[in-house]
Amino acid sequence: MATPCWQVEEFVVSAECFQCNAFQLRSWPVCNPTGYVEKINCGKSKKDEYKSCRSVAVEEGLFWKFEGTVLCLTVVFALLVILRQRALDRRASEKVRRQLESV
Rank of each mutant, 00 (worst) to 15 (best):
M1W: 15
A2F: 11
A2G: 14
P4I: 03
Q7V: 13
V8E: 11
V8H: 11
E9D: 04
E10R: 13
V12W: 12
V13Y: 07
S14I: 14
A15V: 15
C17D: 10
F18C: 09
Q19T: 12
C20Q: 02
C20M: 04
C20I: 02
N21K: 05
A22D: 15
F23Q: 15
F23I: 15
Q24H: 08
Q24V: 06
R26F: 13
R26Q: 15
W28M: 13
P29F: 11
V30N: 04
V30F: 08
C31I: 02
P33N: 08
G35A: 04
Y36M: 05
V37N: 00
K39E: 11
K39A: 13
I40D: 00
I40W: 00
C42K: 00
G43Y: 06
K44R: 08
K44S: 05
S45N: 02
K46Q: 08
D48W: 06
E49C: 01
C53P: 00
S55L: 04
S55Q: 05
V56G: 03
A57V: 08
V58F: 06
E59N: 09
E60D: 12
E60F: 10
L62C: 04
L62H: 07
F63L: 12
F63S: 09
F63E: 11
F63R: 15
F63I: 08
F63H: 12
K65M: 09
K65D: 10
F66D: 10
E67D: 11
T69V: 12
L71R: 14
C72L: 13
C72Y: 10
L73C: 12
V75A: 03
V75F: 02
V75H: 01
V76Y: 02
F77M: 03
L80K: 01
I82P: 00
L83D: 10
R84W: 03
R84G: 01
Q85V: 07
Q85N: 14
R86D: 07
R86S: 08
A87R: 03
A87F: 01
L88H: 07
D89M: 07
D89H: 08
D89E: 14
R90M: 09
R91A: 08
S93Y: 06
S93C: 05
S93V: 07
E94D: 06
E94H: 01
K95A: 09
K95L: 07
V96Y: 00
R97L: 07
R98I: 02
R98G: 02
E101K: 04
S102K: 08
S102A: 13
S102F: 03
V103C: 05
V103H: 11
V103M: 12
V103Y: 12
